[in-house]
Design a protein around this nucleic acid. Structure first.
Length: 501
RNA sequence: GACUCGCUAGCUCAGCAGGUAGAGCACCUGACUUUUAAUCAGGGGGUCGCGGGUUCGAAUCCCGCGCGAGUCACCA
């Protein structure tokens, strides 16, 4: 590491203070964002100045081009980049000397001056005054190639963000997406609520939980794997249209589409069923995709994905039958097992539900455009109502896009007796070693006994949708600070800041 | 977990018939008052991921480990 440059910077900071220049001042009056300046003064002709307009802006210096008694430099802020032009006769000999001596790429600088357009047509700020706002003592990544090392990108995301406009934009899209989701749902009278992340019992999904411990109650706890069971308690309480956007935690593998900590949205709509939920899901995702990308057809990793409505709807059993020639509703366990063997796979737990899941995994990758896969067997849907005309299946759907499960929804089971029996069966699965089976939640049963209205419920894994709209190959690319294997800071760095002051 | 690939200056990368390390950007010094990957001249900077082995000699060959990426397996 360039220890040398870092020492130089620290020495410069000391010098600055001796000269009465504070390298880390407290605030700066910023009147314009970079993007605002570019927009507001786009009308200027080449070489035209607007000397009667004094504005100020600030950002990180990302490029400096010195020309003797003048200098061009580029400031990057939240909105865009803006070029600034500083010269000796604009800021005076002393100011210009400070600029040349102390301003480096990576520093935050505030400038005050008037807008103009250069001979070559670049909207710029003619600097009348400037202030160093924060000195950087680290060298910035290469200005042209940026940082490509995935290890730096994931472990020090701030480095990727500060050096790549694209990365900054990617995470702004993430933020914008959640804004749009809230806007959409609020327009339909859904209210945002929240539920605990620390649970004594895990439920609402099939997954292995993280364990933790609460000292005051001397009790083990789990990080939630779903919001479901608490949100339904809201419905018992009287809420009719609710949603929660929050983190869930699943102690399982990491892959391009799995991350132990991910952002899930769940929504519950009283008096609606899974058909209503299908419709609102389609409308909501279509809206979000259009707002963000400006189109209904997007390109994801070279594939085209068409979000135009209506989306295909296919029953799970039919889809598996047409692809694998296996009937998950009628065939025996042995027949399904034989089919799985034909595809060189078999589940760890040889139980009907797991056989069905396994068969599904074989065909999921055949779906690229948004597709609702519906009517899952009762056995793999412990929280879902049995279908009103076919008792072998439930009123449930999963939304598949680009081979990834994006959403899961059902007509929520609100019959307390049946829910109790479904939980009993899940408990039986736990007994035979299925660590992902759900736990009996007696308080939840009690809540249902008080009565929950007929309700349609939905869960959406927005991280995966963000992958699509940002054309990111891995979920780690759109989670700002992904989980990384721990390594000691000393292994990465041999810097000691204390002995250098 | 298995296999494949990668790890060299702050960053992006070269170097691998084994002979004590290079470029560009960045940094420092100098020239240059409309450049935009500015240009020109000079300079500093490296436990070549870590440990062991082979060898007179290892960034380069062999073994182990660490971290990362991809594929598969596992997994909603």
């Amino acid at each position: 590491m360039s220890e040398e440059t870092r020492r130089q910077r620290i020495e410069e900071i000391n010098q600055m203070r001796q000269e009465g220049i504070e390298p880390y001042p407290y605030s700066f009056e910023k009147t314009h964002w970079a993007g605002q300046i570019k927009g507001e003064f786009a009308y200027l002709q080449n070489s035209e100045t607007k000397e009667d307009t004094i504005l100020s802006t600030a950002g990180r210096v990302v490029a400096v081009r010195n020309h003797g008694k003048s200098s061009f430099f580029v400031l990057r802020d939240d909105s865009d980049r803006i070029q600034a032009y500083i010269r000796l006769d604009g800021v005076g000999a002393e100011g210009f000397e400070v600029f040349k001596k102390y301003v480096n790429i990576g520093d935050f600088v505030g400038v005050k001056g008037f807008p103009f357009k250069t001979h070559t047509g670049e909207i710029s700020v003619f600097v009348k005054d400037f202030e160093i706002l924060s000195k950087s003592i680290r060298m910035m990544p290469e200005k042209w190639h940026g940082v490509k090392d995935k290890e730096i990108i994931y472990r020090q995301r701030y480095v990727e963000m500060l050096s790549s406009d694209n990365a900054l934009k990617r995470f702004k899209i993430r933020s914008e997406l959640f804004r749009l989701v809230r806007e959409f749902l609020q327009s339909k009278d859904f209210v945002e609520v929240d539920t605990p992340m620390l649970h004594y019992l895990t439920g609402g999904a099939s997954a292995r939980p993280f364990k933790t411990h609460i000292n005051v109650f001397e009790s083990d706890m789990y990080l939630r794997i779903a919001e479901e069971l608490f949100l339904k308690r809201y419905l018992v309480g009287g809420f009719e249209r609710i949603f929660e956007i929050g983190k869930n935690f699943r102690n399982e593998g990491v892959s391009y589409k799995h991350h132990p900590e991910f952002t899930m949205m769940e929504l519950y709509w009283a008096y609606a069923d899974y058909n209503d939920i299908m419709n609102i899901t389609e409308e909501m995702i279509n809206y979000v995709v259009r707002e963000i990308t400006g189109s209904e057809v997007i390109s994801y990793q070279g594939k085209e994905i068409d979000f135009s409505r209506p989306w295909r709807r296919v029953k799970m059993a039919d889809f598996i039958k047409e692809n694998l020639d296996v009937d998950i509703l009628e065939d025996s366990d042995d027949e399904m097992m034989a089919a799985l063997k034909r595809y060189n796979t078999e589940p760890e737990i040889k139980e009907r539900g797991h056989l069905i899941e396994k068969l599904w995994d074989l065909v999921e990758h055949n779906l690229v455009n948004p597709t609702f896969v519906t009517e899952h067997p009762v056995i793999i849907s412990p929280l879902s109502k049995v279908h009103r005309v076919d008792s072998r299946v439930t009123e449930r759907f999963e939304l598949i896009i680009s081979s990834m499960e994006m959403a899961n929804a059902f007509s929520e089971l609100n019959d307390p007796i049946e829910q109790y029996n479904r939980f009993l069966r899940q408990a039986g699965l736990r007994d035979i070693g299925d660590e992902e089976a759900q736990m009996m939640d007696q308080d939840f049963i009690r809540a249902l006994e008080y009565g929950m209205p007929p309700t349609g419920g939905l869960g959406v894994g927005w991280d995966r949708i963000i992958m699509l709209v940002t054309d990111s190959p891995s979920i780690r690319d759109i989670i700002p600070f992904p989980l990384v294997r721990p390594i000691s800071f000393e292994e990465e760095e041999a810097l000691d800041i204390s002995d250098e002051q």
